[in-house]
Nucleic acid binder design. Sequence first.
DNA 1: TTGCTCCGGATTGTTGACAATCAGTGCAGC
DNA 2: GCTGCACTGATTGTCAACAATCCGGAGCAA
Lengths: 225, 225
Amino acid sequence: MSAQLDLDEERTLSDKASSRLTQAIVTGELAQGQKLSEADLATRFGISRGPLREAIRQLEGMRLVTRVPHAGARVVMLDKPMLADLYRVREALEGMACRMAAQAMSQEEIDTLFVLLNRHEEAINAADGLAYFQSEGDFDFHFHIALGSRNQMLIDLLVGELYQLLRMCRYRTSHLAKRTRPALQQHRQIAEAIAERDGDLAELLMRRHISGAWKSISQIMETNP
Amino acid sequence: MSAQLDLDEERTLSDKASSRLTQAIVTGELAQGQKLSEADLATRFGISRGPLREAIRQLEGMRLVTRVPHAGARVVMLDKPMLADLYRVREALEGMACRMAAQAMSQEEIDTLFVLLNRHEEAINAADGLAYFQSEGDFDFHFHIALGSRNQMLIDLLVGELYQLLRMCRYRTSHLAKRTRPALQQHRQIAEAIAERDGDLAELLMRRHISGAWKSISQIMETNP
DNA sequence: TTGCTCCGGATTGTTGACAATCAGTGCAGC
DNA sequence: GCTGCACTGATTGTCAACAATCCGGAGCAA
């Protein structure tokens, strides 16, 4: 749904490789910590090593891989300290996005926000087990708020980097999170704060929402490996 | 001072080229909006186009250049809307960094913070005209707080990306900013909040500090082209 | 057994040549 | 005079070969 349209002719081979690599990493097709062999990937993608290396450099900028000279690139390890860092950054950025969205969103966008919430609620009631679609609903909500901020740098940071890492994380722990009900309720409160153009409250609620999500995930990770 | 040590043998040609390009862009040696010719730069750096292209891909990740396929890369244009975006993101991230630093900084680091402030004050009293060194003092302060957050992702985002853009901006407007006195005073307040381990206040003050800086810069940009 | 050295294989880094694409120019045709 | 087209020149994208570097194990000495 929120996957960028990857036409067969999207642009250059580097960009195509970059998309495919991102997809492979986020979905777990390439496991965390796994080494990225240039020769192997190049032949698998049917391209040369040149464009592939450029794609890896780009993924490094997105923090999806870590690269050490003369030793190659590996898929990033989303261990607990890193996730803690990620959620703090996310709290700061999405808080700000929410504040700005409360001021900048058009009425139409706000309406769309509530449509999303209703759709999400239906999805929860209908298929209570399919955590995957619930996650996607969650992402759609945050995605729309990011766009509503009208701050291109913020959008790039969130959509282009942080959300990829979060999706990557979800593929590991999606079956664990059972917080959909309270999360939806918090989303409603946030949307209402935005509808009332209350930036202070919107930021506060979003930060509390994310900070709470981290507490929950962190707790789950204590008991599960 | 805060320049990363770039030994002649720092590692690969791409990394060296990346450093040199960053330097050239930040100092204005490469003007904003200027086109980056691969062939030209490659010969100027005495390397091939391969590593140079990788360096450009990396700079693109740092938001220092914008690249459009089949048309080449250009130095980013720091126009007013973009700077507005940048300062909002900075407000969010440095606010969070300050909050975390108030909790995580060692007593020794906090002492260093005050040493920096005193040194900065002396510099202001001594050479009232040299805005450049004052800017560097300003950066040192923010830099230390970022490091104090102990959040690697936050550090990377601030030091690796935002601060480069800010320095790039300073080279254009350094001679305009006359806000050093009140800024120093605000720094003192922030440092004291950190010393008292008051994360809430530290974040609030830092956000106010940055937001105020933007108001000032924005105002100056109204009258000056 | 432990530790060191050295070597071979594999992987990454670099290069120059080749192909594809785009911007500008001049000419023919209407 | 204007429009459209093909051509040209330059720039970017891609490739395959070459060079540099690192990792792991064999061999040997203490």
